[in-house]
Amino acid sequence: MSEENSIAIEVINVFKEFRRLNIKSPTSLKSRIINILKGKEKLKKKDKFLVLDDISFNINKGEAFGIMGRNGAGKSTLLKLIAGIIVPTRGTIKVRGKLTPLLELGSGFHPELTGRENILINGLILGLSKKEITSLYDQIIDFSELRDVIDQPIRTYSSGMYVRLAFSIAMNVNPDIILLDEVLAVGDAEFSKKSKAKIVEFKKKGKTMILVSHDPNSIVEVCDNGLFLEHGRVAFLGNSADVASKYKAIV
C-alpha cells in the first residue's frame, strides 16, 4: 500500500491512435455524405496510425522525469495523455495529486489583456481561487521580473517576457505535479538558470515533475530518471544520464 502511494504517475500499456487527417477526412457534411454514398466510409479505419505503442512506466513522488525523443516521436502526445487533455486508445494512466499542465507556455494567454489580468485568468484556469491568486500576485510578478510592464497588454511583450510570465505562474501555483514542455530552452541564460534553480527547489519539496526536452544537458542537470521515445515506443528507460547518452548516440 505504501509503495502504491509513493507513485505519482503510473502509465500502463498505453496506446494512442490518431486519425490521419487528409483531404478526404470528412470535416464537412458534404464530403461525409458523398463518402457514405460512395461507400468509402469504411476506409476510415485504414487512416489510423499509432502514435504511442505500448508505453509503460512509473514516476515516483518527488522525482523529476525527463522525456526525450525526436520531433514526432510522440512526446507531446504522451504529455497530453498524462495531463488528461486527450484519452488513450488503450491502456490506463493513473495520476495522484494536483497536476499543472504547462504544455505550451502561455496557453490561454490573451494578447489584448494586461499581464496582471492574464495572471488572474491563467490562475483560475489552473484551478486556483481568486483569493489564492491575489495572494500570489507579488510572488509571481517578482519571479517574472516584469513589474514595470505588468499592467501593459501582453501583446507588447517580447516572446521572452511572455514565457517568463507563463513560467512564473506555473511554478508559483503550487501544484503537486508539473508538466513542462520544452521550457528550459527559452528565456535568456539568467532566467534559464533561475528556472532550473526553481525546479531544484521544487524537487526538494517532494514535487513531481515531467520535463520534455531536446537538450540532453538540461535533462541530466534536472532529472533523476528519464525515457527515450523512438517512433512511439520506449527505446530506453532508465536514469537520466543514460537516457541523455543514448539520445546523443542515436540522434
Partner: peptide, 9 residues
C-alpha cells in the same frame, strides 16, 4: 485554440 488543445479545464 489552446483552451481546448492545451488545457485541462
Amino acid at each position: 485554440g489552446s483552451f481546448i488543445t492545451k488545457s485541462t479545464f
